[in-house]
Amino acid sequence: MDAEDVAQVVLMKTLRSIGSFDGRARVTSWVYRITRNASLDHQRAQRRDQRLAEKAEWLAEVRTPRLEDPLDDIEMKRTLRLIRTLLTELPMTQREVFDLVALQGLKPSEAAQLLEMNPNTLRVHLLRARRRMRKEMLAQPREKEIRGNDG
């Protein structure tokens, strides 16, 4: 599947930039460079995904403080699982930005510089990520409310 993804990217980039081909190199050399760059981009994205998966795994292993009320303890664990799940469902850019700022503690300006992104653009992605996470978390049924309605 990875090869098909890269091939599709190569085809799209080739078609998009065919007008800029100046003929100084052979067409095969030019397409090879496009293919090489697309492969490297794909590998970088996979490494980013792997690091994020490792962070999510680390979050899963983080011990939550033991709360006095067992129901509160269950709710805390449930909330952490939900956050990990929602994090993996964010679009890649929002996930990266949220990871750097919210999980790793970088300042938005530092994260923007690291990602070579305009700071205002980064803030928009962060805002969207937070809104989506909040919306999804609020949409989840609350255990206590459900239990309270049953009995």
Rank of each mutant, 00 (worst) to 15 (best):
P65I: 15
R47Q: 12
D69Y: 14
T14H: 05
K77S: 14
M117A: 09
D49T: 04
N118K: 06
R134D: 10
A38D: 01
P141E: 07
L71N: 15
D99R: 07
L11M: 04
L114Q: 06
T79D: 10
L11E: 05
H42V: 00
G19M: 02
A3L: 11
R24P: 07
M1P: 11
R147P: 05
Q50A: 12
R66V: 15
P70F: 14
R44P: 00
G105E: 09
T93D: 07
A129S: 15
Q50R: 10
E96F: 01
R33W: 05
R81G: 09
Q46I: 04
G23M: 08
R81I: 08
E96Q: 08
M1G: 13
K135I: 15
D5C: 11
E61K: 14
R51P: 00
Q46N: 13
S17V: 00
I18K: 12
L122W: 01
R47F: 06
W30M: 03
D22N: 14
L114W: 02
F21G: 04
R95K: 11
Q43P: 00
P70W: 12
V10E: 00
F21K: 05
L100H: 02
E68D: 07
D99M: 08
K55C: 03
I83D: 00
S109W: 06
L82N: 06
I74Y: 15
V124W: 10
L114F: 08
L82T: 01
L126N: 02
A139P: 13
R51L: 12
M133L: 14
M76W: 09
Q46L: 08
A56S: 06
E57D: 15
A7I: 05
M92A: 12
M117F: 09
P65L: 14
D2N: 12
A7F: 03
L82M: 08
I18V: 12
L59P: 01
L100K: 03
L103C: 02
V62S: 12
S20C: 01
F98P: 04
L80N: 07
R51I: 03
E110I: 05
A25H: 07
L15V: 03
V31T: 07
W30G: 02
T88D: 15
A45K: 00
E136T: 14
V27H: 00
Q8C: 10
A60L: 11
E54Y: 00
N120W: 03
L67D: 10
L106E: 07
R26N: 03
D2A: 14
E68T: 10
Q94D: 09
K107S: 08
T85L: 13
R16T: 11
R78S: 08
V27G: 06
Y32L: 13
T64P: 04
W30C: 04
A60T: 05
N120H: 07
L100G: 05
L122M: 03
R78F: 06
R63E: 15
D22Q: 12
M76T: 10
S20K: 15
R44M: 10
K77F: 13
E145V: 13
M76R: 12
R134V: 14
Q8G: 01
Q104A: 01
R131V: 11
Q104R: 02
D99I: 08
M92T: 13
